[in-house]
């Protein structure tokens, strides 16, 4: 097996083990997501027509906020106990290492949201088809949030008030993902083809995969100075 693949698997496994031994963190993100989504009907009223229309936007914005919440932890634990120093000194590609952390972050904080979506979709009376497309768009979109967010997390490492600042930096950059993600669901509800939305999301995912690990690695080196 290739050395870089081995490194990638090592990091993903390590972070997943750590997350399993600190399960509370994972659960808080998920509960936050469910709670934010459930608050909307209380805020705007229970008319099913309106809720059905709002559902993709509400779920997407809630997913965006939930992933911002969990991004603060992406590097901070490793930064505080010195592991990040050792990672920067690893004689192997830092970009691959960062990619490993992004993947595990998504598996812990993005994937549960995707899996939770059907239940929340039913709360908003979405059609089965719309729920399917919503899950697909979240499946393609949430990894981008983790990857773009990682840049922000690396830049705000160790800063006071880093959490709020992180959202300020990252949220504008995530707008295209939000637009294409919700657009796909609205398209399917309107009886239109979803392929253009989803392929644009896919293109963004490929772009993010190609560039964000390297950019995040540079950001980490800047922040560790």
């Amino acid at each position: 097996m290739n050395k870089l693949t081995q490194l990638l698997i090592l990091i993903v496994r390590r972070d997943l083990v750590l997350a399993m031994r600190r399960r509370a963190d994972v659960l808080t993100t998920l509960i936050f997501f469910v709670m934010v989504v459930s608050l909307f009907p209380l805020g705007v009223g229970p008319e099913m027509d309106m809720l059905r229309k709002m559902a993709p936007g509400v779920l997407w914005v809630a997913a965006l906020l939930a992933s911002m919440l969990s991004l603060g932890r992406l590097f901070s634990a490793d930064y505080l106990d010195g592991t990040l120093e050792q990672m920067l000194l690893a004689p192997q590609s830092l970009s691959v290492l960062v990619l490993g952390k992004m993947i595990s972050h998504w598996m812990v904080s993005g994937l549960p949201l995707v899996l939770m979506t059907p239940v929340l979709g039913l709360q908003f009376d979405m059609s089965v088809q719309a729920i399917g497309v919503l899950m697909l768009s979240l499946l393609l979109g949430t990894p981008i949030l983790s990857m773009v967010g990682a840049i922000g997390a690396a830049l705000t490492l160790g800063l006071r008030g880093g959490g709020v600042l992180l959202s300020l930096l990252v949220l504008p950059l995530c707008i295209p993902v939000l637009i294409f993600g919700t657009g796909a669901v609205q398209a399917v509800s309107g009886g239109l083809s979803v392929s253009s939305h989803l392929s644009l999301l896919g293109a963004l995912l490929v772009l993010a995969l190609a560039f964000t690990p390297w950019v995040t690695a540079q950001a980490l080196r800047i922040s560790m100075e």
Partner: peptide, 10 residues
Amino acid sequence: RAAALLAIVG
């Protein structure tokens, strides 16, 4: 340096 990286990404 950090702000520069952000501006480039932006």
